[in-house]
């Protein structure tokens, strides 16, 4: 029980730290990667809360699909900025 609680505390700290870094890191690409890591940590948190349904959805949607959308948007924005500079 205490071991479980210790793990939960560690997980809670990791969640808060990755969330904080997501908002505070200066580079946008790093922020997106940190956000994906945050989503995967959330997946573990859902398992600790014995909610396997949500864990499945969070892993596939929260971390996977949202991360892909964000990275794709980042790539498109950077490409457009570069093209604008070139012209």
């Amino acid at each position: 029980m205490t071991l479980g609680l210790a793990f939960d505390l560690l997980l809670a700290c990791a969640l808060l730290w990755s969330a904080w870094r997501t908002l505070s890191t200066p580079r946008l690409d790093r922020a997106i990667i940190l956000f994906i890591a945050f989503g995967l940590l959330m997946t573990i948190a859902w398992i600790r809360l014995s909610a396997p349904d949500i864990a499945l959805a969070e892993a596939a949607i929260g971390a996977g699909l949202t991360g892909a959308l964000l990275l794709d948007a980042y790539g498109a924005l950077r490409q457009r900025k570069r093209r604008r500079k070139a012209s």
Binding site: A19, L28, A31, I32, F38, M42, W46, Y74
Partner: peptide, 26 residues
């Protein structure tokens, strides 16, 4: 002010609300 990061913050807000919902019920 940077909008993509604002979207990230909005998602963090959502995750927090979900944790409160499930955590308090547990």
């Amino acid at each position: 002010a940077q909008l993509p990061r604002r979207i990230l913050a909005f998602n963090l807000m959502g995750s927090g609300a979900f944790l409160v919902l499930v955590g308090l019920a547990q």
